[in-house]
Simulated scan of single mutants.
Amino acid sequence: MSRITGAVKVGGVVGQPVSHSLSPVIHNAWLEAGGIDGAYVAFAPKDEDGFAALVAAGRAGLIAGVNVTAPFKEQAYRTADQVSAAARLVSSANILAFRDGQVFADSSDGAGVLYALAEQAPALSLNGAHVVMLGAGGASRAGAGALLQAGARLSILNRTRQRAEDLAADLGAGVCVADDDTVLQTADLVINALSVRPQIDLALVPAHAVVMDMTYRPVVTPLLLEAKTRGLTTVDGLAMLIGQAGAGFEAIYGLAPPQMDMRAVLMKHLKETL
């Protein structure tokens, strides 16, 4: 069982909105399983000033660390005193740890993508693979760095071409912008980084390709359901969420998360909250 004493370490997830986040379920389950003196809550600052106030509280020693979600990942990166190589690669951070008045930033989104692919599409080799990323927002940016480091080449397909071109320019070599969904014909991996169902023709996707959706509500999204119907290998956003969470837990509490079947915990929670 978890325990709360005067030495409790307080962590949390920060975003807007954040009430839908599964991060408190994940981290508090780990805290309870490990009997760790800690608490993990949700913070929903209304704007950038509110986020800055939360960071100030961290610098003052009131919070041990936070996981960061939209729309604050890039602000989190800019506010840090030290940033990891993973965060620097994508100019955003989903983890802030506060130590002795200093702010340390990291990005585990890319690690989450790799974890999910290894778990649910183990036959896929990213080295030399053609990845089509749907969307050019923060989620695309966060996952792209790890894919490029793994040897993949990336095509970005986005409704607003200029935004895709800006992201491609930031990411550098190995990234191009697609004109339309005919780019799917040569895809080895298709990743939906949009919060909505993308308007693409899955009939164009080769039979060997993998389709991943970063969204985890529902776990089997309409895109993944169609991909399954077509016989394609699918990867869900829940696996990515679990994969990225461990680094945040360790950064906040200074301990590796206890071994447990987190997917079962989350599936039970999702069924109870339907």
Rank of each mutant, 00 (worst) to 15 (best):
A93K: 03
G137M: 11
R153K: 09
G110F: 11
Q82C: 07
T215E: 05
T273A: 15
V14C: 15
L241N: 01
A178F: 00
P24A: 03
D179E: 15
T182L: 02
M212L: 14
I242T: 06
M214V: 09
V10D: 04
D170G: 09
E119H: 11
A264H: 04
P71F: 13
P218M: 08
V66C: 08
A121Y: 12
I252S: 06
A29L: 03
T5Q: 12
F104W: 11
G137A: 12
L223V: 08
L266M: 08
L255P: 02
L62F: 12
V103I: 11
V220T: 11
V177P: 02
V265H: 04
Q185G: 04
E119W: 11
V66D: 01
L126W: 10
S84Y: 09
A86L: 14
A142K: 07
G243S: 11
A116Y: 05
A116M: 13
F249M: 08
E250L: 11
E272L: 09
V18S: 00
M133N: 02
L184P: 03
S125Y: 02
L124G: 09
V41W: 13
I191N: 00
Y115N: 05
A209I: 11
E74N: 05
E226K: 15
A152E: 12
N127L: 04
L124T: 09
V55N: 07
A44G: 03
Y253T: 03
S23T: 10
D166G: 09
L154G: 00
V190L: 14
D106T: 00
A7E: 14
Q149N: 15
A136D: 02
A146M: 06
A164T: 01
Q75T: 08
V210L: 14
R78D: 15
V211Y: 11
D201Q: 14
L224Y: 08
R78N: 07
A118Q: 15
T160P: 00
A256P: 04
A209E: 06
G248N: 07
P71W: 09
T182S: 14
G151W: 05
S91I: 00
M1C: 05
Y40C: 09
G174K: 05
